[in-house]
Design a protein around this nucleic acid. Structure first.
Length: 270
DNA sequence: AAATAAGTCAACCGCGTTCCC
DNA sequence: AGGGAACGCGGTTGACTTATT
C-alpha cells in the first residue's frame, strides 16, 4: 500500500540549503503550489525529501515572513502566551504573524527562557502589581491611581478591556455598542493564565475597544477553559476591531486604534 | 592572535495523528 | 478495516558566530 514510490534516501541531500536550492523550491511552489510535499522535490528537481522542503518553505521561503529582531511587544506576547499555553509553539506562532514556530522556539530557548525565570522571581516579590482580585475597571476609571509607564493615552473614548468585552458578550453589559448575546454563559474567573494572556494582548495592541461600557470581572467558579474562551472570543474581537477601523475611513487602521487607546495592564502599578 | 566557551539558529529526528489506498 | 504514507509538531542536534580569556 501507499501513495507514492519510495525514494532512495541515500541520494538525498541534507544540511544547509544552497541559494540555488532555495530558488528552485521557491519558483516551483509559487508556480504550482506545494500540493503533496513528497512530490515537491521530485517535480522541483531537488535532492531533498518532502519533509525538508516543507520545513524550508515554512521557516524561510514562505512570503510574509518577518526577519530580524523580535519587538518588545512580540516578546511580551510570547512570554504571556507561553505562560498560558506552555510549549505550544505552533499555537503561539499563530498569534504572531510573520513568525514561525521554529523561530519562536529558538528565541524562547536562547533569550526569553532565562529572562522569564528571573522576572518571575522578581514578580513574586512585587505585591504592587495589579492583582486579579483588584478591579481593572477601577484602575481605568480612575478610582485607583494609574501610573502610566511612559506614553500618553488619548483618553477621550470609553475604554473596554478585552476581558470586559468578553464578559459583556457573555451578558455582562448591554450598552449601546455592546454585542448581541448569542448565548448566555456563566461569568468567568480571572486566572493567572488569562491575566497573562490579556497582558500580552494589551502589549501587542489587541484589546482595547472603544464604545461599550465597563464591567467587573466575572467568575465561573472553575477557571478551566477560560483561556480557550479568550482565544475564541479574541477572533471575534479582531473582526470587530477591523470593522470599527473601517468606520474611521482613512483615519485609523485597526492596529492604530488599539495602540492609541489601550492601557497595558503591565503599566497599571498601584 | 589563538583558544575556548557561550550563544544562536537552521535543520533533522521521532512521534502522534490524519489521510487515503 | 487495516496498514502505510503524509503531515504537523515539539525536542534536539550541530554548524556557525560572537564573546571572553
Amino acid at each position: 500500500m501507499g501513495r507514492s514510490k519510495a525514494v532512495d534516501k541515500s541520494k538525498q541531500r541534507k544540511g544547509l540549503w544552497s541559494p540555488e536550492e532555495d530558488e528552485r523550491l521557491r519558483n516551483y511552489i509559487l508556480q504550482h503550489g506545494h500540493g503533496c510535499w513528497s512530490s515537491v522535490p521530485i517535480n522541483a528537481g531537488l535532492k531533498r525529501n518532502g519533509k525538508s522542503c516543507r520545513l524550508r518553505w515554512i521557516n524561510y521561503l514562505r512570503p510574509g515572513l518577518k526577519r530580524g529582531m523580535f519587538t518588545p511587544q512580540e516578546e511580551e506576547t510570547i512570554l504571556a502566551l507561553h505562560r498560558a499555553l506552555g510549549n505550544k509553539w505552533s499555537q503561539i506562532a499563530q498569534r504572531l504573524p510573520g513568525r514561525t514556530d521554529n523561530e519562536i522556539k529558538n528565541y524562547w530557548h536562547s533569550c526569553l527562557k532565562k529572562r522569564n525565570s528571573s522576572s518571575r522571581s522578581n514578580a513574586e516579590d512585587k505585591t504592587s502589581i495589579l492583582s486579579p482580585s483588584k478591579s481593572i475597571t477601577a484602575c481605568i476609571s480612575g478610582s485607583e491611581q494609574v501610573v502610566d509607564g511612559g506614553g500618553s493615552h488619548k483618553g477621550s473614548f470609553p475604554k473596554l478591556f478585552f476581558a470586559e468585552w468578553l464578559a459583556a458578550e457573555n451578558g455582562g453589559v448591554h450598552g449601546e455598542n455592546s454585542m448581541a448575546v448569542e448565548e448566555e454563559k456563566e461569568p468567568f474567573l480571572y486566572t493567572n493564565e488569562a491575566f497573562a494572556f490579556l497582558n500580552s494582548k494589551h502589549q501587542s495592541g489587541g484589546y482595547l475597544m472603544q464604545g461599550g461600557g465597563l464591567t467587573e470581572a466575572y467568575d465561573d467558579g472553575e477557571g478551566s477553559g477560560v483561556v480557550e474562551d479568550i482565544f475564541n472570543s479574541q477572533l471575534k474581537l479582531e473582526d470587530q476591531v477591523a470593522e470599527t477601523a473601517s468606520g474611521f475611513g482613512d483615519l485609523f487602521s485597526g492596529e492604530e486604534i488599539c495602540s492609541d487607546f489601550f492601557m497595558p495592564i503591565s503599566q497599571m502599578y498601584i
